[in-house]
């Protein structure tokens, strides 16, 4: 907090447009992740806090990548991880690392989707609930989100470096 005060007093602020774009980008990306978590926990008109992982595990398993224990573990954890990422992105806390983690997660998702398409698996994406079939548009959408996540992460790193340089 103290260093940011110093920056604002001793160096020119980074351009307003990049900062605004960064805020918009992280809020948009955070909202998408919050919605992804919500769709895994609330579907068919009701909350599924006690049994969401059964449904999500079935979706993860349809990718034929992980063993059963991995499928179940991921199904338990992933919605909450997405929720945390979404909240952190919107709040802007630890943005460099959150942006990097989000990029990494999206990269894993895209890899799994491309693999499924290459294997000819006719499955649902599992991204936002039950009924979205995995297709080229799904991969395109997640790729766009990856570009956005990378932009947010890189932007946050540049901003931080700029602050550090200015403060030194």
């Amino acid at each position: 907090m103290a260093s940011s005060t110093v920056v604002s007093q001793t160096s020119p602020r980074p351009g307003a447009l990049p900062r605004t774009l960064l805020v918009l980008g992280r809020v948009a990306l955070g909202s998408v992740f919050l919605y992804a978590a919500y769709a895994k926990l609330h579907f068919d008109g009701a909350w599924h806090l006690s049994d969401y992982h059964f449904f999500f595990a079935m979706m993860i398993d349809s990718y034929h990548i992980l063993p059963l224990w991995g499928v179940q573990g991921m199904a338990q954890v992933l919605p909450w991880f997405e929720l945390a990422l979404g909240a952190l992105l919107i709040s802007g806390l630890a943005l460099r690392w959150v942006g990097a983690a989000t990029s990494g997660l999206l990269l894993v998702f895209i890899g799994a989707m491309v693999r499924a398409k290459m294997l000819g698996l006719e499955i649902n994406c599992g991204c936002f609930g039950n009924n979205e079939k995995l297709g080229a548009l799904t991969i395109l959408r997640d790729s766009s989100l990856l570009v956005l996540a990378l932009a947010v992460a890189i932007g946050a790193f540049i901003l931080e470096k700029h602050k550090a340089t200015a403060s030194s």
Partner: peptide, 15 residues
């Protein structure tokens, strides 16, 4: 509704 395309027996059993 369960995810379309079929479900592994062990996962269905747990549910």
């Amino acid at each position: 509704g369960l995810p379309g395309g079929g479900v592994d027996y062990q996962l269905l059993k747990k549910y």
